[in-house]
């Protein structure tokens, strides 16, 4: 059962991963080589963005390390750059920070321990909502069969024409 849930989670998260993350890596390699002064983002910088976007800036607490201008984030970026140059993979670098800062430093809870809850919850919600709908519409359709449709043919009005102004007059009578 657990494997099944994990599988669903992983396939969902893979299929839904924002394109911008990957799109960024294929951006504009097509700069012409005739103009030597044109700067292109280096492969290193792309990898840096990939890793640093998955880490949360420890002091600003809402931004990713990549987007933050805070001192710690700047130093973390420098360290990540060195680690990429030394040939470490994204996973190794993320683990390095996780081992020192805890899961707090990751932008989303890791797929381990209890944290599958937050991934399964939306699916659970969807199922519950669907069940509610099915239930509601089924009883509703039954009602309809018992009622003659032409009862309320034509204009769309409500049965509840009660108005407070008229009600108060009636109450006083």
């Amino acid at each position: 059962m657990r494997f099944l849930i994990a599988f669903v989670c992983i396939s969902l998260s893979l299929s839904l991963a924002p394109a911008s993350l990957f799109a960024a890596e294929t951006v504009k390699d097509t700069v012409s080589k005739k103009e030597p002064e044109v700067k292109v983002e280096s492969e290193l910088e792309k990898k840096l963005r990939f890793v640093a976007s998955m880490l949360r800036c420890p002091v600003c607490q809402g931004e990713s390390v990549y987007d933050s201008h805070a001192d710690v984030a700047v130093e973390m970026k420098r360290l990540i750059r060195e680690k990429i140059e030394a040939g470490e993979t994204a996973e190794e670098i993320l683990t390095y920070f996780k081992d020192r800062y805890g899961n707090f430093v990751l932008m989303e809870p890791p797929a381990e321990g209890l944290h599958w809850v937050i991934w399964v919850f939306p699916i659970f919600m969807a199922l519950l909502g669907g069940l509610f709908l099915f239930q509601n519409l089924r009883t509703g359709a039954k009602d309809l069969q018992q009622t003659k449709l032409d009862d309320f043919d034509g204009q769309e009005t409500t049965d509840d024409n009660s108005s407070e102004v008229s009600d108060i007059k009636e109450l006083r009578l």
């Binding site: 998955m54 990713s64 899961n103 932008m107 809870p109 890791p110 937050i118």
Partner: peptide
């Protein structure tokens, strides 16, 4: 969620843009 996890287990986690983007889409 981060608050609930902290109160229940004492662990601190972050739920940020990547999660919401995936689930809300």
């Amino acid at each position: 969620y981060p608050l609930a996890i902290e109160v229940l287990t004492g662990e601190r986690v972050s739920v940020a843009a990547p999660y919401f983007n995936k689930v809300m889409a």
